[in-house]
């Protein structure tokens, strides 16, 4: 792993370098934007830390030029003394992945760098593991006794399309507080998921249906979002595992 630090202040550069090196990461430094950009192009680092307040080229200009470096996909983090909420939004809007505020605490710096190094790796290799309670092959085998493989394949695809529709319906129905129809959709999901072998999804829908019926709807919005996120991950894993 290689990290590039661009900072005009020699003391900061040395401090940041020594903290990150303790994590077993190789650190390169540049004292201004121009040399930082050419070093980034040469090294193709795994992450880049850019100080915001620098003479000549500031952190934002530096970021703009870094974004134009070919093949450079590293997460770029800002180091800054600014820390009010408006600044935060500005950094993220401009394209910084994250930012660290000064005075920089060693544990915050190393945890944040480690998080982003791990995270950019992860994009390429998401989990393709399918757990048994998530999807039970026996249910599919059962269907294959009665339906040809192409038909079964279509059925699963249809289920996925339908679930996505259901999820947006649930969100709409929740904003109009139509809990009766929410229960009916959840009931359908419970049944369908169960028949196809997605037992965990079936159980989740069932539980949400029960809660909603009992009038426990305070967390429903978040629960629907979570259920949606779960189904997306489930289908991703299902497809990468079986196709």
């Amino acid at each position: 792993m290689k990290v590039l630090v661009i900072d005009d202040n020699a003391v900061n550069r040395r401090y940041v370098k020594s903290v990150i090196e303790q994590e077993g990461i190789e650190v390169f430094t540049a004292k201004d934007g121009v040399s930082g950009i050419s070093l980034a192009a040469e090294l193709n680092p795994d992450s880049i830390l850019v100080d915001i307040q620098m003479p000549d080229m500031d952190g934002f200009e530096c970021l703009e030029s870094l974004k134009k470096v070919p093949n450079l996909n590293a997460p770029i983090l800002a180091i800054t003394a600014y820390s009010n909420p408006e600044d935060r939004d500005k950094f993220i809007a401009k394209g910084f992945q994250d930012y660290i505020t000064k005075p920089v605490k060693p544990n915050v710096l190393s945890s944040t760098i480690n998080y982003w190094l791990k995270n950019s790796e992860k994009k390429e290799q998401q989990s393709t593991l399918v757990r048994k309670q998530e999807f039970d092959m026996a249910a599919k085998d059962e269907l294959l006794k009665h339906i040809d493989p192409v038909g079964v394949q279509e059925l699963y695809k249809q289920f996925e399309v339908e679930i996505n529709e259901f999820m947006s319906n649930l969100q709409q129905l929740n904003s109009s507080k139509n809990f009766y129809n929410i229960c009916s959709i959840l009931h359908t999901i419970k049944g369908n998921a169960g028949s196809l072998g997605f037992f965990e999804l079936s159980e989740m829908a069932s539980e949400l249906e029960e809660n909603t019926k009992l009038g426990d709807t305070n967390n429903l919005e978040q629960d629907i979002l979570d259920l949606k996120a779960y189904t997306q991950q489930l289908f991703y894993r299902y497809e990468t595992h079986f196709n």
């Binding site: 505020t101 945890s111 757990r131």
Partner: peptide
């Protein structure tokens, strides 16, 4: 809310995992 990850560590968390959760991680 798109908070910077550094804020979670600043608060004292040891690790942070973004949802949807990667179970292996």
């Amino acid at each position: 809310k798109n908070l910077p990850v550094s804020e979670f560590f600043e608060a004292g968390m040891n690790e942070y995992v973004q949802k949807p959760l990667n179970y292996d991680e």
